[in-house]
Computed example of a mutant assay.
Amino acid sequence: MRIYNLIAVGAALAIVLSGCSTAPVDKTELQDLYDEAASMNIAYSSSESIEELEDAAGDASDLLDDEDATQDEVTEASQRLEDAIERAESDTSVDEFTVVDATMGQDDGYGYAEMSITVKNNTDDDKELTGVDVAELDADGNIINSYMSYNKNYQPTVLEPGQTMDINLTCATSDGIAGVRCTKYEYSYYGSPIIGELSEPFIKMF
């Protein structure tokens, strides 16, 4: 009778121990996705998709370092990171040029100030920038003047990939310019002017 009891206890203990044992967590897919995200070119991705990708990659990195991470957590993080990668690849802004900054100088003592607009070449090729459109804004955001601003002597300036250039404008301080908005750019393609529209208007209040 005692022998049978020992056998029964041993069998029950084996069942309990087998239930407590867990298979090793497989992080292979998560690591592959993390490596893919780290090597992506996100220069043309939207700011929203970049933020989503960075958040998903950050969570993935934490789980890769976490020895106590569960398989469910890893699987969920893999799916989230995969979705973020797909969005960053598809949700892109392919503007040839973007306006990245604008500044307004002080009155020169003669009633004028210099406004500078910084434009960037986003492509992988040399591009001949001609100018950008400018809408001068008052303090309430209303348009005072609008025009296409051109480079010096109206000659296109070649910008290399990633290179920026400042377009400098002389403005009358009496106009009360408090900000600027740009929505278009112009460049030369084999001598012909091409006008492109920014996917997101650039607006800056001084």
Rank of each mutant, 00 (worst) to 15 (best):
I3C: 00
L6Q: 13
I7R: 13
A8N: 11
V9N: 08
G10M: 09
A12M: 14
A14R: 04
A14C: 13
V16Q: 04
V16L: 15
S18P: 00
G19I: 03
C20R: 09
T22R: 15
A23Y: 07
P24V: 03
P24E: 04
V25F: 03
D26N: 15
E29G: 00
L30D: 02
Q31G: 01
E36R: 14
A37Y: 05
A38Q: 12
A43K: 13
S46Y: 00
S46Q: 09
E48G: 01
I50K: 15
I50V: 15
E52N: 13
L53G: 01
L53K: 02
A56C: 07
D59G: 08
D59P: 00
D59T: 10
D59R: 12
D59V: 09
A60T: 02
S61I: 00
L63M: 08
L63G: 05
E67T: 12
D72Q: 13
E73W: 02
E73Y: 03
T75N: 14
T75I: 07
R80D: 15
L81T: 04
L81F: 07
E86Y: 04
A88D: 06
E89N: 14
E96K: 14
F97E: 04
A102C: 11
Q106I: 09
G109R: 12
Y112D: 13
M115T: 06
S116P: 05
S116T: 15
T118C: 02
K120D: 03
N121G: 08
N122P: 03
T123R: 11
T123H: 09
L129H: 10
L129Q: 09
T130W: 06
G131N: 11
V132T: 13
A135P: 01
E136H: 07
L137Y: 09
A139G: 01
D140H: 07
I143N: 06
I144Y: 09
N145L: 12
Y147F: 15
M148T: 11
S149D: 08
Y150D: 03
N151S: 02
N153G: 00
Q155I: 12
Q155S: 14
V158S: 11
V158R: 11
L159I: 04
E160L: 10
P161W: 10
P161M: 04
Q163R: 08
N168F: 00
G176P: 07
G179N: 07
G179D: 08
C182D: 01
Y185F: 15
S192D: 13
I194T: 12
E197M: 02
F202H: 06
K204Y: 03
